[in-house]
Nucleic acid binder design. Sequence first.
DNA 1: AAAAAGATAGATCGATCTGTCTATTTCTCC
DNA 2: GGAGAAATAGACAGATCGATCTATCTTTTT
Lengths: 180, 180
Amino acid sequence: MKKKTGDPKQRLLETATTLFYNQGYHATGINQVIEEAGVARASLYLHYESKESLLLAFLHQRHIDWMDGLKSYTGEVSKTKEKIAAAFDFLFDNNEKEYFRGCAFLNILSETTDRDTAVLNVIQDHKKDLRAFLAEILTNEKQAVKDHVYLLFESAIVESQLYRNQWPVQEAKKMALGLL
Amino acid sequence: MKKKTGDPKQRLLETATTLFYNQGYHATGINQVIEEAGVARASLYLHYESKESLLLAFLHQRHIDWMDGLKSYTGEVSKTKEKIAAAFDFLFDNNEKEYFRGCAFLNILSETTDRDTAVLNVIQDHKKDLRAFLAEILTNEKQAVKDHVYLLFESAIVESQLYRNQWPVQEAKKMALGLL
DNA sequence: AAAAAGATAGATCGATCTGTCTATTTCTCC
DNA sequence: GGAGAAATAGACAGATCGATCTATCTTTTT
């Protein structure tokens, strides 16, 4: 029993976020979640009907928070190139803050089969939103450039997680800016 | 009990490959492995000292097989551009054969924490080998181009898994060839 | 103050988990 | 055919899994 601030539902979501993100979904047991959230077992099932619904709640909240973070970075500047640069800087800072744990959605994707359609949909929707957001910044660019920047952005996330190093973010940033 | 061809050790590795790759490491239990391999429980621990060592054997074999497959594609042609095109074609065909299950190494990476140093090392070594292999094909190109192609190659894998669609492979292929 | 809702601890469920062990059978090789 | 290795089935251990349930306590609302 650790946390004690906020209401139980909020603490469960926060704890699940930390655990699912840092050790994975299947590697995290419900017992650990309730223990670290300081919440009774029955309270979990009062607010979430199953472990999977807790996962969905986590992904949903993560999408909001992550996109908000990204928007706060790109919103600080006005030019297209600056916004793209800011987007990569967001990845850079995230890596520092979250110890190169990579993309929460892609990580869960790896644990997901085609049968988990609800989970798969949330993940795909998140990436579609991200892709649309980048495309809007690049509104005056050709579709090929929009796609290209998106693909570099994605590999920056994955590869920095893989190598536990910022070089993919910095390289991908240079390449993306070079396309504009 | 399903498989019955080949020796038990081989069947265990084949079954573990299928299961770890398609449903994930933590989602796969040892019981399912031995049941589908048609092998006694004791036989598993005769050949592999733990579940993790079976995972390491899977990753090791997968590295060999996957790189062999890649080399057989690029070995068919002689020009640099053709080899890069062939590398992306390999991804394309892999997606068809393996139902967009993506990169075995990146999938396991998502289930791996910093404490699993043995697993993490195998994954990083695989990607280093891949990167070196692409760099060798691009031996006459600048380092920035080598890195760029590598990053596009990686996102082609990840994004086609995400969308269950070949467009990222085809787009990344065009972009990579456009750099040369 | 009474009623309703929220939260608690903890027992319990059946299933599954990784790993060990024994005892028996099958195979290989000389 | 005989010795030794390999493989087998299956019991077993001890822990954990996700989920349900009861019964009690606390908080909020009216």
